[in-house]
Design a protein around this nucleic acid. Structure first.
Lengths: 235, 235
DNA sequence: CGCCTTATTGAAACCCCTCAAATTCAGTGG
DNA sequence: CCACTGAATTTGAGGGGTTTCAATAAGGCG
């Protein structure tokens, strides 16, 4: 909490979760939160843990992954600042369905589940904001589900790169750098393919001048071309 | 509304969306709803329509589909009685991202978007209930996304059949009849494959005595066997 | 009966996965 | 500074699950 002392509302106000709440309200809400910082590559919680805390990411990136029964891992999504996560588990009182790992140095606000429920009853706008956030997420999963069901691998990889670029892209003069450590394996787990296929695809794109990729790093050189691949009608 | 006159709360009380609300509250909530019945195979709204109404299904089945850019259709899910739909669009003030079609004779409660938002502010429990519903749906899409990404077609078809059986199954002495018109194409659109593969798979299962399928109809004869396929570890 | 939709089945093509081996790269410690 | 090590990556060959295309069969309905 120390870090929030003084002007907590400055931290909260710009976050989607707190839209349309007065500074007074935010003060009370903030006073019930726990603030903490984490190093990179730290587990926040594991799939299967009892869900106790509602989390809002203030700074950094968090990766949400899921383990399949036979041990395969998939990456569900990367959480960006201002987004809430672990919403599902807290509301349903079920174990966390995902594992959360920090990608960066991360700054986090958390509330105990019951505290958050009481807050939502007192400030319905909080619940409505959460609804909007979840609604957007459903949208996203519907889209990805459709992609997965109807589209070829190359296209899905293109889409994944563009999505990452829009979330964590850093503009360079050469192109757009995706500013997190990103292995071929990571990309494979996001697109439901294998690291081999990802590697082959990136190699081809590198030959064509669409991207430049090093170890754990991808730079998009020709975004427009990638969009063409991502949207191409001729399958 | 006429049909709700007298005892509206009897209609609403068992619906998840209205949990933990008093009969008084339900009376007011019900008084702002519009009730309507629809025939089978009727469009409730189309993908792209301006979203104006929040819907709760009281009776029957509704199918939610999505059209891809290149004209392919996929079935996102079947809505069962007591479930809300079109939640996403109303909250985000965006066009409906899906098309809703009645499968059966359907009975529906709807609210105008702004009315529902005001209700949620007055009765936060409504928003919290919606959160639970959406949370469950995100769960489901995450699971299906993972299935789609990591599992073979046969398994996905088995899962789809089991899911349908639990939602709309009717117990016969021969087995479980899936009690809606269901073409091979429908199953293909639910599992992200082609009607040919579905047909081949069902033929094989029919030979093995797992299912019995006629035109637009499937009966599960050996549910346990299907579960084995759906859960089989050896990929 | 004729028509249209739904379903079946075969053959060929193909995308992608799997497995194996080699290569590059970053970090570590001698 | 450089060998050593383990991880990340690349690339090839082969196989298999699915799709695609085409043709035929079977059902329902006017």
């Amino acid at each position: 909490m120390a870090i929030l002392a003084g002007n907590p509302t400055h931290l909260l106000a710009p976050i989607g979760f707190f839209h349309q709440l007065s500074f007074q309200d935010l003060d009370e809400i903030a006073s019930t939160a726990t603030h903490r910082e984490y190093d990179k590559n730290t587990y926040l919680f594991h799939q299967g843990d009892q869900a106790r805390r509602f989390c809002v990411l203030v700074k950094g990136k968090v990766k949400l992954t899921q383990l399949t029964e036979d041990g395969q891992q998939i990456i569900l999504r990367y959480v960006s600042p201002g987004e809430a996560f672990a919403v599902v588990a807290v509301l349903s009182k079920i174990p966390y369905p995902v594992t959360a790992t920090t990608v960066n140095q991360v700054s986090l606000l958390t509330w105990e589940d019951q505290v958050m429920l009481d807050l939502m009853k007192k400030y319905p706008q909080l619940a409505i904001n959460s609804l909007r956030i979840l609604a957007g997420r459903i949208q996203e999963f519907q889209d990805r589900f459709r992609e997965q069901a109807t589209e070829r691998v190359e296209r899905r990889i293109a889409r994944a790169l563009l999505r990452l670029a829009s979330q964590t892209g850093r503009k360079l003069d050469r192109g757009i750098l995706i500013d997190i450590a990103l292995t071929r394996q990571d990309l494979a787990e996001m697109t439901g393919t294998t690291l081999y296929t990802v590697s082959r695809t990136l190699s081809q794109w590198e030959k064509d001048g669409l991207v430049s990729s090093q170890r754990e790093q991808v730079t998009i050189l020709a975004p427009h071309q990638l969009v063409v691949i991502a949207e191409d009608m001729s399958k």
